[in-house]
């Protein structure tokens, strides 16, 4: 296994720090939230073997979030755990797609989670992430490049995993096809901000930290069309939506998620856990 230590940022101006911090929050919060949503499925997947296999992906995502929070911590001189647990919704930069509930009900009660939504959301997210990591591997920032190269190694599996489930369910029973169609529609209403680069988007791309959103979107479209070619459906991607997580405008689902995730960590503020 690869070690996860990375290079530190050097010689950043204050504005550079602000740009990088915003980008890192997008990357970190995305993985943090979707890892949480995926972990709510623990023990409840349609098949025990799948439960075990997809649990690895949730862990990988949390591991990636930890690397990004580590870099963010270098910039701010703060602890990665504090950055993960103590930032409120307005300071979060994750895409809406990563924060939405898995379905009706609470995970501690008897939730009705939707596997079709889980598969579609994860395919979209992971394909977006794969494209983004390819772009980040060319970043002008060495620490970002290093972390992206590491995270990218695990994306082969994540993408293969969700692509396999997606194609199979899209080509199976009428019931499954209907559920997948409904899930696609739902995801289409939540994913427009995936490639949005936030309030500093122009500066972030001008500095070469990451490729422009339009370029990444094109690569994403090509990749997704290849997947959809193996189904009876046509790929579409929304231009816009109501909320934009990259600008800190979120849904209520996020607030609830963050409360849960920091319940213990914040319960005794001075404690070490």
């Amino acid at each position: 296994m690869e070690k996860t230590e990375s290079g530190k940022f050097e010689g950043l101006t204050e504005t550079d720090q602000a740009y990088l911090a915003d980008l890192l929050k997008q990357l970190a919060d995305d993985d943090y939230l979707l890892s949480f949503r995926s972990s709510e499925w623990l023990g409840l997947a349609p098949h025990i073997e799948e439960d075990v296999a997809s649990a690895s992906i949730s862990q990988d995502m949390m591991g990636h979030a930890a690397m990004y929070y580590g870099l963010l911590g270098d910039i701010y001189g703060r602890d990665a755990d504090d950055l993960a647990h103590f930032r409120g919704p307005a300071d979060r930069r994750n895409s809406i797609l990563t924060e939405k509930r898995n379905g009706e009900g609470e995970y501690l009660d008897v939730p009705k989670y939707d596997w079709a939504y889980h598969v579609v959301r994860n395919l979209y997210y992971n394909m977006h992430k794969k494209v983004k990591l390819v772009a980040l591997k060319q970043s002008s920032s060495t620490p970002l490049r290093d972390v992206a190269a590491k995270a990218a190694m695990e994306l082969y599996y994540h993408e293969l995993h969700w692509r396999t489930w997606f194609i199979q369910l899209m080509n199976s029973s009428d019931d499954a096809k209907a559920r997948m169609a409904a899930a696609l529609e739902k995801v289409n209403g939540e994913c427009a901000d995936l490639f949005h680069l936030g309030k500093y988007s122009e500066d972030i791309t001008r500095k070469g930290y990451i490729a422009p959103a339009s370029e990444m979107k094109d690569s994403f479209r090509k990749e997704m069309e290849k997947v959809f070619d193996q189904t009876d459906s046509v790929f579409s991607f929304p231009d816009d939506q109501k909320e934009n997580g990259r600008l800190g405008r979120h849904t209520e689902d996020l607030e609830h998620a963050l409360e849960l995730m920091s319940e213990v960590y914040g319960s005794v503020p001075y404690a070490k856990w």
Partner: peptide
């Protein structure tokens, strides 16, 4: 051994079920 509905799903589940800690 594992159970799976078909070969493709079996393949994507195999490593993570039995080989999470070894190279």
């Amino acid at each position: 051994s594992l159970t799976a509905p078909n070969d493709e799903i079996a393949k994507v589940m195999a490593q993570e079920n039995f080989l999470r800690r070894e190279p």
